[in-house]
Structure formats: C-alpha cells, structure tokens
Design a protein around this nucleic acid. Structure first.
Length: 812
RNA sequence: GCCGGGAUGAUGGAAUUGGUAGACAUAGCGGACUUAAAAUCCGCUUCCCUUUAUAGGGAGUGCCGGUUCGAGUCCGGCUCCCGGCACCA
C-alpha cells in the first residue's frame, strides 16, 4: 500500500466537483473575490510551463472559497493572432478550425489538472459574440475622439507583413519573429493612449499591491520628462520651430539646430533654397535606414541653407537636417548645444560648428580646446548675460520663466509613451468597424450592425503587404450606412491586444447580448481582487488594460478606474536551462504526465520547487519528491483512518503537547503563507508535520485530530487527494464545501523554550526553561552552566543582554 | 549611461525582518525490512582542525570595510549575474 491509483481518484473527484457545480460563481456575491489568471493563446495543447500560472490561481481560488468568499475564477482564450494564420498558410487548415481544436484540447488538460474554473464563463475572443464587443469598444473610442487614423512612420515587420505597435518592438525587432523592423509611412488607426499618460503614471501610486518592478517598468515606459518648449523663428520665412529641452539653462550655448529627416516642416523650409536637392537626397537615404542603423552610424546631417533666431539673444544659427533627431519624441527638432550635449558635440566637431561653453562645473573652468566630450552635468551658468552665476537648477526655472514672459516658449512635459497603433494587415483578427464612403468619408459601422463578421470562406491567407481581407469582394464591398451609396470596409483587423484589454469585464457577464457587461455585474465584481500573470506583459497588456479601464470609467460604463487591486507575477518554468517551450523542445505535456503521476503530483511539483514569483526548474527529482509527499500522506491516513477524529483533544497530555503545538503552528503557518503567496514554505510546513506524525509512537487524541486537520490543510495544493482522504475518514462531499480550519491560540508557543547562551555573541550553550521564566532565573541558570563557566573563567562580566525567550548574551 | 532586482551547502531553497545560518526537499552515505532488488521506514550529511569515541575548537551567507552585545539581514565602497529603459534632446 505504498501508493494509490491517482488517476482513478482524480477522475472521480473531478466528476463530483462538476456534478455538484462547486466551481460555479454566485450570482449575487455577498463577499466577492475576483481571482483572475491571464488568459492564454491557444497554441496546441498546454504544457507544464503554462500550468504554473493556473495552479497558483487555483490554490488561491480554493483557499478563498474555503475562507467564505464568493469567488469568481474564470478562464478563456485570446484566440485571434498570427500563429493560427501562419499554420493556415503552411498547412491549409482554416485558422478557426485549428484554434477551436486547440482550445478543446487545452480545456481538457486544464480539467484533468483539477483547476477550479467556472467553465460556463469561458470566453473565446475569435467568436463573433465576443469580438462584436471588441468592435463596440473601437466605436466607443472613436466616438470619444480616442481612435483616429493618421499617416505616420510606423513599425513594419517584413516577415509578418504587418505593422506593429511600439510595445511590440523589442530592441528594434519584431516581438514575435525577431525580424528587424522597418519604418514605413502608412495611414493607420491609432488609440490615443498618450492622452492618458499622466493618469496612467499618477495612478500607479494607487496600486499598492502591484510588484514594484512592474510599476517601475511602466514608469520607464511612460517616460515622463519635464522641461521647456522654446520657439525659434526661421529667418526670412514665416516658420517657427518649436524645440523641447530639459536643459533651457544651456540656451546661450546653441550654435545650430537639427531637424528629423521625417519632419513635415521640411517641405516648406527648403522651398526655394539652393541646398534643396542635397537635402532631399539626405532625407531619402536617412528615412530608408532602420533605427538600429541610424543609432550605429556616425552622426551626420546636411545644412538646409536656412537660419533660426535664438529667442533669448537674437543670435542667428544654421539649421541642419540630421538623422539622430527622432521624429516621434518632443517636436522632432532639437537645439544644438555642443558644449553640453554629447551628440551635439560630435555633430559640431564633424561640421566644424562653434562650441560655446555656457555651464561650468562649480570648482573649475572649462576650455573648449581641452574638451573631448560635452560637459553634460549641472553647473553654474556663464556667458549667459543676466543669468550668469545661476545654478543649473535655478537657471532652468529662470530661463523657462523668461521665455514664457517673452512668449517664446514655456514649461512643457513630454512622454515617451506614444499613441497605440492598432491596425494589422492580417486576416485572423477582429475587423475594424469602419466604412469609407466616397460621399460621407469615414463612417463608423452603426452599433446595431455589429458584429462586422470576419468572412469564413477565404482561400488566400497569405499577406502581401495589405490585409488579405482587401481581396475578399463580399466583405470589402458594402453600402454606406449614412447615405446608402457604394462604399468599402476597412480591410484591416485589430491588434489582438485590443481583445485582451477588456476581456476581464466579459467574464462578469459573458452571455449578455445587449451590453459587453451590465453595470450591475460590474459593480458587483470589480475590481479584480487578484490578477496573476507573467512579467512579460508589464509594458504591453498591463498598460493597455489600465487604459481601457480608464476610458470605460470616463464613459460611465464601469465603476472603477483601475482594473486590478493586486497583481502577482509568477516566474517561468525552466527545463534543461531554458524556458519551457515547444520551440525549445523541452516541454512536459500535461496529459501523459497526469496519466502517469496524477494532477496532484504535478501541482505539488510546481508549487514546492521554488517561491512562485521566481523561475522554477522542472526536474525529475522534483517530481520524485512530490510523489513521495502525496504517497506518504495517503499511507498515513489510510493506515490510521479508524483513529481519525474531528474533535480537538479535550485535554492535552504532556506526552502529546509537542505534537499538538506543532499542529497549531502548522495551521497558522500554512494560513499565513497562503495569504502571502509562499506556497513552497506552506508545503514544507505540511511536510514537517507529516514527518512528526510518522514519528509519533504513542498515538493519542492530538494525533487523531492532527490527521483530520492535515487533510484539510492539504486541500488547496492537492485537492483530489484531500477530498479522497476526506471521504475515507467518513466525511461527506468535497472540502470546498467546508470552512478553512482555525487554530488554538493557547498552543502556538512551546511551553518549554530553549534559551541560547552566548558569550561575546558566540553560541556557547543552551538551556531549557519554562516559557515564562524570569530574566533573573535564566541569568543564574546561565552562570551555573558548565560550558559557560569554562568560557568565563578568569574574565570579568561587563554586560548581560537578554532577548526574552531567545538569547542571553554575556559580554566579557 | 540611468533605474530596478539578485548572489546562502553538491542541488532547489528556508531563516520569526537585527537574535542558534542552512527549515523542508533532492542527491549522497549508513542502517532496518527483503532470498534479492525496488519501494518503504530510521539515521547522518556546510567546511576545516583536534579526538578511539563521547566531545571540543575555528571558519563560514559574492568581496572589502563600518555600525552593534550580536549582521545573511542595517550603512559605505566594490565584483559579478538577471531584468527594464536608452540618440528621449
């Protein structure tokens, strides 16, 4: 009887849970707990690498249920996206067929793992009853002026043949396929997330239970920068160039201006100048280069033939076009201060432009001839007329104020966060609900005409630089909803991150065909009490869904302006040194593993190996340990099942006191650890209790009761085994139907304590005394101690420090 | 470059937040059970030195220094690793 038939037992309990509807969500929650794990992309079957997230979420869900919460614990699928389409192109399977089959397989895997999802609320983003509301969201943003179409230089992945959002470009490469991205000038749909930059930043402070790390990443990503706008008039032209700078204290050091090659003002600026041809050539070659190339090249540019006037002193400086100036930061124009900006310094040296020192360090002077680099630190303003002598920080304020008074600029704030490009030139996504009418222009599809169905019958998925939908005549050709004349649909689909920006709301009211979610349900369940997912979404999904929440809040559809109270980011599952993934060929599939070892073993393996926020190595040794753990518990209970008692001991004998204290400590420890996501130490505590129970030779009422409690404490981690043992000892139903056990305050502390005796901070001896022994008694006992005496001989005691119940340190 | 986080036995990891470093597990070694093996149960297992043994001593949480009766934990200075941002004006 070393082991038990895991698969048979697990199946039995999974059927029971389903039959009794134990995972169902309450319609009228009294004490709600919205526990959400990030949904997933259905790429084949799930494997153990994915499961960590789900197992963590399930432990919390089961624990909270037993604490009396009405738990909402749903799951769904982020089912649009490129892999399905790429598979379709390679193998001729329709993306929908492939996706839905994957979902069926993966659902099965989640069920055999015993994850307690309310399956009635499962959502699948590629189905019309879901993406209807994704399109509705687009229209809402459009109505609120937050969705707009503009021509811009955008990120283009030549491999995926589609544009990408900034958040999907990692180190100038496509986040999906790693291909270096190109810049293309295209007309695309954007969401005005930049308009929410300040609120997205400020409200991070409200998110007390989010990891610091994620908040820091979001702050970096939003990239708020305070500074000053300065207007430079162009000589002999009716043009004003606005620059943004964080260092207005260096304004007297401006010796040139640089404009980004993509800047629209250039057309007008170089009209009728003799350098026109040269400038156009430069623009042409510069705009072709990738941002990576541009970064690596030596800084260069070309003189436009025009001059600008420095508003502070009227100096005339040449204007260049230079590709180190970024079109999408600030105004795309910079003032060149070579003495105090490294890039400007290099540029000035190359073109022999003057370098003028206007900031000097506090304790020394700078000489242009000696400079090998720009002096970028703060210092004292010099060569700056009335501002001479000011410290940089005062100078920044003084110059800003002066420029504002003169109407030549003023304080300004810039963000790195840019508007979110959401058009995709691919088939497998939610169609953008917009119609172009030759008479009425851009016309949104009326709400009652939603969803705009993705045509199922399509032969050619291959992207050719424009959406495959563009060549589906049935889809593209339509009538204008306003005037009825012949019109065309937008052929693009939406970024899948749009689908995932609001999915957490659909779970609240998944079958509502009138609204994406009723206000009543939103009020009942929001915000998410615990969100669990991967850190990789820190600057993508986790910003987008905060943005959507704020928009919906502003529009009066939901009662919260932040979606999630608490966030937990779990670590990855590593195997053989690499992230577990199909492409690395190191996955452990769920089905075969559960067949062989059972779901409880899988769960314990994941939970015990490491703290959940850290990466965990999946090893065979870990599996061995987990298997031993469940077998050992099963055997202990099975061998003693007739002894198990639901009643705490009436009185605790001296002999059993140690065990009974251990039991109460274990209840307290496991409870605390569950509250703070320390599942590895919670299981370690159970293991300690288990070891102690195995070593108990004289079994009494405390032992009998301990078994009863052990089964209960096990239930969030190994729910199948726990329920099986529960019925083995004569209890009814599932532990999900029982409250979490409490502990006896009186038996948390040992009645005899060990006091460590130290001399000069070194451990020399230990004494055992009753719990409430006075310091004096302990001191005397210590001085009598043979070992202490040996170390004290011939020395004078200078001081004695007593830490109650722990340590007595004698200083000699 | 700027901003985070980290470094503890052979290994995964504990340590009440300044109070016995190494819980629990894995691996290893030894014992019991067995005809035998597996499984199981029990014991040992940071390193070095002394000792037949009991035992005793010393060192030890990446490195150097500091605060303290006492530091894995706090402070200062480094080294290395991981992550985020980065031509951001």
């Amino acid at each position: 009887m070393n082991t038990y038939n895991k698969r048979a037992i697990e199946k039995k309990w999974q059927e029971y849970w389903e039959r009794e509807g134990l995972f169902k969500t309450s319609d009228k929650p009294k004490k709600k707990y919205y526990n959400l794990v990030m949904f997933a992309y259905p790429s084949g079957d799930i494997h153990m690498g994915h499961c960590k997230n789900y197992v963590i979420g399930d432990v919390i869900a089961r624990y909270k249920r037993r604490r009396g919460f009405d738990v909402l614990h749903p799951f769904g699928w982020d089912a649009f996206g490129l892999p399905a389409e790429n598979r379709a192109i390679a193998e001729g399977i329709h993306p929908e067929k492939w996706t839905m089959e994957n979902i069926r397989t993966s659902d099965e895997s989640l069920k055999i793992l015993g994850i307690s999802y309310d399956w009635d609320r499962e959502i699948i983003t590629c189905l019309p009853d879901y993406y209807k509301w994704t399109q509705w969201m687009f229209l809402l943003l459009y109505k609120r002026g937050l969705a707009y179409k503009k021509e811009a230089y955008v990120n283009w992945c030549p491999q995926c043949q589609t544009v990408l959002a900034n958040e999907q470009v990692i180190d100038d490469r496509c986040y999906r396929c790693g291909t270096p991205i190109e810049k293309r000038k295209l007309k695309q749909w954007f969401f005005k997330i930049a308009e929410y930059a300040e609120r997205l930043l400020k409200d991070l402070d409200k998110l007390k239970d989010w990891p610091q790390r994620v908040k820091v990443m979001q702050r970096n990503w939003i990239g708020r920068s305070e500074g000053c706008d300065i207007n430079f008039k162009v000589v002999d032209k009716n043009i004003t160039l606005r620059v943004f700078t964080t260092r207005p204290d260096t304004i007297y050091g401006v010796t040139f201006m640089s404009i980004a090659p993509e800047h629209p003002v250039l057309d007008q600026l170089i009209k009728n100048t003799k350098n026109r041809e040269q400038v156009l050539d430069y623009i042409k070659s510069a705009t072709k280069r990738s941002s990576l190339e541009r970064l690596e090249r030596e800084k260069d540019g070309v003189f436009t033939g025009c001059y600008a006037i420095n508003p502070i002193n009227g100096e005339k400086v040449p204007i260049f076009v230079a590709d180190y100036v970024l079109i999408d930061y600030g105004s795309g124009v910079v003032m060149g201060v070579p003495a105090h900006d490294e890039r400007d310094f290099q540029f000035a040296r190359k073109y022999d432009l003057p370098i003028k020192i206007v900031i000097k360090p506090k304790d020394q002077d700078l000489k242009v001839e000696d400079m090998e680099n720009a002096y970028e630190d703060y210092g004292i303003m010099v060569n700056s007329e009335q501002f001479n002598g000011l410290d940089s920080s005062e100078g920044i304020k003084a110059v800003t104020r002066y420029l504002a008074e003169k109407n030549s600029g003023g304080p300004s704030v810039n963000y790195k966060l840019k508007d979110w490009l959401i058009s995709r030139q691919r088939y497998w996504g939610a169609p953008i609900p917009i119609i172009y009418c030759p008479k009425c222009g851009t016309v949104p599809v009326p709400e009652e005409a939603l969803p705009v169905l993705l045509p199922v019958k399509i032969k050619d998925f291959i992207p050719k630089g424009k959406s495959p939908l563009a060549s589906v005549a049935d889809f593209i050709n339509t009538r204008c909803p306003k005037c009825g004349s012949k019109a065309e649909r937008d052929p693009d689909t939406m970024d899948t991150f749009v689908c995932s920006s609001w999915y957490f709301l659909r779970y609240l009211d998944p079958h509502n065909d009138k609204e994406f979610c009723s206000m009543e349900k939103a009020k009942a369940w929001l915000p998410i009490d615990q969100y669990i997912g991967g850190i990789e979404h820190a600057t993508g999904h986790l910003i987008y869904f905060r943005f959507f929440t704020k928009v919906l809040y502003d529009a009066g559809y939901i009662p919260v302006d932040e979606p999630a109270q608490a966030l937990f980011t779990q670590g990855m599952v590593i195997r053989n040194g690499e992230k577990m993934s199909k492409s690395k060929g190191n996955v452990v599939p769920v089905g075969p593993f559960v067949q062989k070892y059972g779901a409880d073993v899988a769960r314990i393996t994941i939970l015990f190996a490491a703290p959940p926020e850290r990466d965990m190595e999946w090893t065979d040794e870990g599996v061995v340990g987990a298997e031993r753990f469940v077998n050992r518990i099963y055997r202990l209970i099975a061998e003693n099942k007739d002894r198990v008692s639901k009643n705490p001991p009436d009185s605790v004998s001296d002999e059993e006191e140690g065990l009974y204290i251990k039991l109460n400590q274990t209840i307290a420890k496991v409870t605390e650890d569950l509250e703070s996501f320390k599942f590895n130490t919670a299981i370690a505590a159970l293991w300690e209790l288990l070891n102690q129970l195995y070593q108990t030779t004289r079994k009494g009422p405390a032992f009998d009761y301990s078994l009863y409690i052990l089964i209960q404490l096990l239930s969030p981690f190994a729910p199948h085994l726990a329920d099986e043992l529960w019925s083995m000892v004569g209890e009814k139903g599932s532990l999900l139907e029982y409250r979490w056990p409490g502990y006896d305050q009186r038996y948390l502390k040992e009645k005899t304590i060990t006091v460590v005796l130290q001399i000069n901070g070194k451990v020399r001896s230990h004494i055992k005394v009753p719990l409430d022994t006075s310091e004096e008694v302990i001191r005397n006992r210590a001085l009598e101690d043979a070992k202490v005496q040996r170390h004290l001989s011939g020395k004078k005691i200078r001081k004695v420090i007593y830490v109650p119940g722990r340590i007595l340190n004698i200083v000699v």
